[in-house]
Nucleic acid binder design. Structure first.
Lengths: 104, 104
DNA sequence: GCGTTACATAAGTGTATGCTTATGTAACAA
DNA sequence: TTGTTACATAAGCATACACTTATGTAACGC
């Protein structure tokens, strides 16, 4: 179940930090490690988890592997969230209208 | 960090099932167990996790404790998601406009 | 009071998870 | 070819997690 992979992937603060970094712009695994105090294998394992959750996607570029945010994972969260729009607070109530289009 | 609590809470499929059941209508812990093949302590523990993540809220009613969806948790996910709206697929692109209001 | 019902909490246990060190593999440079 | 760089994978280990059984607590009926 991909939904499970997504929430499990985001349950780890280090992985959310990696994701956030990638959201600011795609980069390779080494660049991601900069200023993060994380070992190379740990980073590689985290990226593998994010990849299988479809939250990031990779692209080989010679010796480097460029990572970037995969919209697919975010879309799945948005759809999960949309199921419970009846409970969204009033501030976000206006979203309902547009979410109707999303369902089609 | 509440954000961590939320994603960790949703990382478990049983807890997501409980949440989904509550989204269809508030009910007490015993009613939640019906047709779920889960022990009473396990349910109680899951509800405690969902509660600390602000995904559900409780209300004592005599011997019973009625549970229902807490919009607060959902709101936090919506805000987390909103941070990455630049990567949302085209279908949801239209949401951007309304999300601007959400930020204020 | 006494028993029952609804739920929470404590303590113990197997498994999952995130890390480590060590090694493998593929692309480049000399 | 030889070495180096960038990354993935394997194996081992400590901790976290979801469950269990046992017990505690609070509200009700009698």
């Amino acid at each position: 179940m991909i939904e499970n992979d997504i929430f499990r992937a985001l349950a780890d603060p280090t992985r959310r930090a990696i994701f956030e970094k990638l959201a600011a712009g795609g980069m390779n695994a080494s660049a991601l490690r900069a200023g993060m105090e994380i070992s190379q294998p740990a980073m590689s394992q985290h990226l593998a988890v994010l990849r299988s959750a479809r939250l990031v996607k990779e692209e080989r570029q010679g010796r480097f592997v460029n990572y970037e945010v995969d919209p697919e994972g975010l879309s799945l969260i948005a759809h999960w969230l949309a199921k419970y729009r009846a409970y969204w607070p009033a501030r976000i109530e206006a979203l309902k209208i547009l979410l109707k289009e999303m369902d089609q």
